[in-house]
């Protein structure tokens, strides 16, 4: 019976060993990759575009697996809901493997569509790897700037309905007068 026990134990170790090796071999991305977003702070006016660059550096001794850099935008104060795809059409960029000691830079052009203070950051991830490497936070401050008369359309937008409305009121008043005079016994 003890022989059977040792056999089962040995068989179990043989079966589970590859998992242990796999787990031990998968280095978390954050330990070998550093990722940074530049600039660290941006002040823009609503609707104004700005550029940001993300640099992914391999600080390890082995090439990284194929990497995808993903951008995210959030409002830490949750006063505004943010859909990052409203700011830029492409949120993820594939950069492939990064060699040991090498760096790859990718850039985005963003256009804020709502005012407020937002946190923008990038993460590097790899398909099949269950860890990510995250960057610093880019603080984006978007100030509101709207004009009351964009493109000179305000006078037209006010005048056109007003003119038609006045004509309509005059016509209705005229029709009421006609009806009254027709109804009057003196004609």
């Amino acid at each position: 019976m003890i022989r059977h026990l040792f056999f089962a134990l040995g068989l179990g170790c043989a079966l589970l060993a590859p998992l242990g090796q796999g787990a031990a071999a998968a280095t978390p991305l954050a330990e070998t990759i550093s990722i940074s977003v530049d600039p660290a702070n941006v002040d823009v006016v609503l609707g104004e575009n700005f550029d940001l660059t993300v640099t992914v550096s391999n600080d390890g001794t082995e090439p990284t697996p194929a990497l995808v850099v993903h951008l995210d935008i959030t409002d830490p104060e949750q006063t505004t809901s943010v859909d990052p795809e409203d700011w830029t059409p492409t949120l993820s960029q594939t950069i492939g493997p990064v060699g040991a000691g090498e760096s790859i830079t990718v850039s985005w052009n963003l256009q804020p569509i709502s005012p407020g203070s937002f946190a923008t950051y990038a993460v590097a991830l790899s398909p099949g790897v269950d860890t990510i490497a995250a960057s610093n936070v880019l603080q984006v401050n978007v100030s509101d700037q709207r004009t009351l008369n964009p493109g000179g359309i305000l006078p037209v937008s006010l005048a056109a309905p007003s003119i038609v409305g006045v004509l309509l009121l005059m016509q209705m008043r005229f029709a009421r007068k006609i009806r009254k005079s027709e109804a009057s016994p003196l004609g």
Binding site: V45, N49, P150, S157
Partner: peptide, 18 residues
């Protein structure tokens, strides 16, 4: 006219801030 005025204003406002 009213609908067109509202739409034209909103479209111009959006175009004004790109």
């Amino acid at each position: 006219t009213s609908l067109l005025a509202i739409l034209a204003y909103l479209a111009s406002a959006d175009a004004g801030i790109n």
